[in-house]
């Protein structure tokens, strides 16, 4: 069964068979507003935890998206090149950014689970 974990910077990572799928949360897409461009990492890039992995350009501003855990990028969501708005309409699903081979599963365990993230988001408003 896939587990989903969250960062304080509003990235999510869904882990399936040792592969992590990374995106930004519903809260993040709502805060960013209309997304017009997503700059994705290179396949094969080695990420350390918290390293800048992608850039999201909304109408307003550019925002960095960080790697929630360390690992190697194995695939990027090519669909976002033509349809960056998918991040707005389906942040937790079709709007994923990239997949990665997770270096240390312990890093995933130490991220927030759904309930903890929900509580964190509520504390922000």
């Amino acid at each position: 069964m896939a587990i989903v974990r969250y960062t304080k910077e509003h990235e999510w990572i869904r882990v399936e068979d040792g592969v992590g799928v990374v995106g930004i949360t519903e809260y993040a897409q709502e805060q960013l507003g209309d997304i017009v461009y997503v700059e994705l990492p290179e396949v094969g890039a080695e990420m350390t935890q918290g390293a800048e992995a992608a850039v999201v350009e909304s109408v307003k501003a550019a925002s960095e998206i960080n790697a929630p855990v360390a690992g190697e990028v194995t695939e990027v969501n090519q669909n976002l090149a033509d349809n960056p708005g998918t991040v707005n309409t389906d942040a937790m699903g079709e709007g994923w950014f990239f997949k990665m081979k997770i270096a240390d599963p312990g890093e995933v365990d130490r991220l927030m689970d759904g309930a903890a993230y929900q509580e964190y988001v509520e504390s922000l408003s």
Binding site: G33, D34, V59
Partner: peptide
């Protein structure tokens, strides 16, 4: 509206979304 500070005022930045409003 989503409100944000603009020149010392709490101002509406967007309602439905910037592109739709534009």
């Amino acid at each position: 509206a989503r409100m944000a500070p603009v020149a010392g005022y709490e101002m509406p930045v967007q309602y439905q979304g910037i592109i739709a409003e534009h």
